[in-house]
């Protein structure tokens, strides 16, 4: 009898604690989630770029989600150079075809994968990009070749809406 009583009491206390804990969790979540991107930020998640005036061998930089995106219209030499690289030579092996759907256009997040600086165009040992912060060299496909960066520069989701317009994101 006495044992049964304690059990019931324990159950009551456990239930109270458990239900209380659920409530605390439910209250904590909004306080955390409020720091996530809000509805107006999410609405700006894609941007459209007019590339009609971009010539071969030139790069434009546009702002997308607060970060620079390099859009480079590559020359034949650059494309050839990017395609000729053997996979074994790469720190982060990726084929150029996978990075540039249309080989003429390289659309890439202009953020060094080391610590987030913006690499310089047409610099470095591989005719691509060079990050001045800690000396990472990228090739004409934006792949890491030398230096501390661990991976190639990221390719965002993008598509050609029409012949002259790229929609990023």
């Amino acid at each position: 009898m006495a044992e049964k009583k304690t059990k019931r009491r324990d159950f009551l206390f456990t239930a109270t604690y458990a239900v209380g804990a659920v409530g605390v969790g439910a209250v904590v979540w909004p306080m955390i989630d409020q720091m996530n991107p809000d509805a107006s930020v999410k609405a700006l998640a894609s941007t459209e770029v007019d590339v009609s005036s971009l010539n071969r061998g030139k790069t434009i930089t546009v702002l997308w989600r607060g970060k620079p995106v390099f859009i480079r219209r590559r020359t034949q030499e650059e494309i050839a150079e990017a395609k000729s690289v053997k996979m074994e030579e790469l720190k982060h092996p990726e084929k150029d075809e996978d990075r540039a759907k249309d080989p003429e256009w390289l659309v890439m997040l202009g953020v060094c994968t080391h610590l987030g600086c913006v690499p310089l165009d047409q610099k470095g040992d591989y005719n691509g990009w060079f990050c001045p912060c800690h000396g990472s060299h990228y090739d004409t496909s934006g792949r890491i070749r030398k230096g501390p960066a661990p991976t190639n520069m990221e390719i965002p989701e993008y598509k050609f809406v029409d012949a002259n317009t790229i929609k990023i994101g």
Binding site: P30, M31, D33, Q34, N36, D38, A39, S40, V41
Partner: peptide, 13 residues
């Protein structure tokens, strides 16, 4: 108004 509309749970807070 931004807090009330766009921020996640902003209206609640």
């Amino acid at each position: 108004e931004h807090i009330m509309r766009d921020v996640n749970y902003g209206w609640l807070i």
